[in-house]
Amino acid sequence: MKKQAVAAGFVLFSFMLPTKASAVSFDQLYVFGDSLSDTGNIYNATGKTYPSSRRYFDGRFSNGPIWVDYLGDQLGLKPTLFTTIPPTPFPTQGINFAFGGASSGLDNAILDNRGLPGVLKQVLGFAETLQTNNQTADPNALYTLWGGANDFLFLNPEDSTTPINNISLALNTLVGVGAKNILVFNLPDLGQIPAAKNGNRNPTTLSKSTSDFNLGLAETVSALSQNPNLNIISVDTYSLLNQASALGFTNVTESCLDREDICDPANNKFLIWDDYHPTTAGHKVIADTALAAIQAKSVPEPAINLGILAVGAFGTVGMLKRQQKRSALITAGRVINAQWSHTTVEN
């Protein structure tokens, strides 16, 4: 495919009930996702040619640091890029497994036939490596998961079932190997981003698929949240396009790169950098919102613990059957077992 940007997704407030924020402490940060979370993996894997424009900052799909950088600074953690280390042993600072263009499943939606892992493959590979080394996931680490947009933008805009199943399986896999603190992002209304008007895409279809995906993901989050031993923290991205103006963004519908006549990256007034990705100012909002959600959930007040889970499209819809998840995990684990060890990246 000839697309130059890969995913879409943004964040705003979690609209959480008031509660006292307290200091939080994690000893590692693991990141799974696509270009919204990639701090240089696909850039290194493609010989520093993608993203190619000099207007993109240091291998990131934005004009500056992204939410992973900002949140990492706030937590005092900096994940190591997956492409700069061997898969094992895991470094103490955690790993960023996210690859620009990652589908929700096993492969890359943009650069196919290169062995670059999709979101589910990132998680299953992580789990497989732990099991091979007779380890469990660090229960004191923070694990972040954000994906699904590329399936709608570059694969099948009408199929919400596949990305729902993939991301749900990824979440259950992390829980299955011992992860306790998981930060989960839903999707914005993809029908409202600039890319929805490009490439013969149908904004109405993208909006419906986004809604269906968010409802399915909420179902998984609701089910996992019934476990008192898990700290599932969700950040609602769906509200951003309707609320970003309240944060001081004066242009939330056009990409900064498309309006160079009025776009000054230094003034932080544009929400969107290219047709798919937030500006660094938008990413800062994401990081601040994520940190607020983390701090709120760190206060063990039973009356609001579940209420802090995101609202809107991330509201509780139901509970997935655990047995179905367990069966799907076993099947997918077998599929990925052999594939992960052969995943290579070439500079």
Score class of each variant (00 low, 15 high):
224 L>P: 04
183 L>C: 04
194 P>Q: 03
176 G>D: 14
260 E>R: 14
194 P>R: 00
201 R>I: 06
188 P>A: 11
200 N>R: 13
218 A>G: 15
252 V>R: 00
259 R>I: 09
255 S>R: 03
211 S>L: 13
220 T>W: 05
253 T>Y: 07
223 A>V: 13
190 L>D: 00
199 G>H: 05
230 L>M: 10
208 K>A: 15
189 D>Q: 05
187 L>F: 09
235 V>F: 07
255 S>W: 01
250 T>H: 08
207 S>A: 11
242 N>C: 07
222 S>W: 14
235 V>I: 13
225 S>G: 07
219 E>H: 13
221 V>W: 02
190 L>S: 01
171 L>F: 07
172 N>S: 14
192 Q>C: 11
204 T>K: 12
188 P>K: 09
241 L>Q: 02
234 S>L: 04
235 V>K: 08
234 S>C: 10
192 Q>P: 10
252 V>H: 03
198 N>W: 14
216 G>R: 01
245 S>T: 14
172 N>A: 14
232 I>V: 13
253 T>F: 05
177 V>P: 08
225 S>W: 07
253 T>D: 07
187 L>Q: 05
173 T>D: 02
190 L>A: 01
198 N>I: 15
200 N>F: 13
174 L>I: 06
243 Q>M: 12
183 L>Q: 06
173 T>F: 10
220 T>D: 09
181 N>Y: 07
206 L>C: 09
235 V>M: 11
196 A>I: 02
236 D>I: 11
224 L>F: 00
230 L>G: 06
218 A>I: 09
176 G>H: 13
251 N>M: 10
238 Y>I: 12
217 L>N: 03
226 Q>R: 15
182 I>N: 09
213 F>W: 01
189 D>L: 04
175 V>C: 06
212 D>E: 06
212 D>S: 10
174 L>F: 04
191 G>L: 01
249 F>C: 05
178 G>Y: 04
194 P>T: 03
260 E>D: 12
180 K>Q: 10
182 I>L: 03
232 I>P: 11
221 V>D: 05
182 I>G: 04
257 L>M: 11
199 G>P: 10
248 G>N: 02
245 S>K: 15
177 V>M: 04
238 Y>M: 09
255 S>G: 07
177 V>L: 10
221 V>Q: 06
176 G>R: 14
247 L>D: 00
224 L>S: 00
256 C>P: 03
203 P>I: 01
179 A>G: 05
259 R>W: 09
190 L>W: 00
242 N>A: 13
